[in-house]
């Protein structure tokens, strides 16, 4: 896999990721955030110096195996608790501002 160059983050990219993450960011904050994020990427990019050509990509650093559960119903039946923290609820449903396609 080719090593990624620590890339410059521009303000448009910051605006886009903020939008994808649903975080409200004022235009005035964008340059400072771009600089910080660029710094983080540059820091992580140090890892590119390691030759990983012969190493398989890994999804976890744990030396354990995935635990499995049996197919039994052991949970549920407390709908009032599930919706208890919702800003609005009606008839056992979460009630959210209308989202229609």
């Amino acid at each position: 896999m080719p090593a990624n160059k620590p890339s410059e983050i521009d303000t448009a990219t910051v605006r886009r990721i903020a939008r994808l993450a649903r975080i409200a960011v004022k235009d005035a904050e964008l340059p400072a955030l771009a600089k910080e994020l660029g710094g983080i990427l540059a820091w992580v990019a140090v890892l590119d110096e390691v030759d990983t050509a012969a190493v398989a990509p890994m999804a976890s650093v744990h030396d354990e195996v995935l635990r499995w559960r049996e197919d039994r119903v052991t949970d549920g039946g407390y709908s009032a608790d599930i919706v208890a923290n919702a800003p609005a609820q009606e008839a056992g449903f979460f009630a959210v501002p209308k989202v229609v396609e």
Partner: peptide, 24 residues
């Protein structure tokens, strides 16, 4: 399956709203 992919809540069709929901 009787239970969900990653939780022990039931999968049966037609239950009351949010009755088959685990905290997961």
């Amino acid at each position: 399956s009787a239970a969900k992919l990653f939780s022990g809540a039931a999968t049966a069709f037609g239950a009351a709203p949010n009755a088959q929901v685990s905290l997961v």
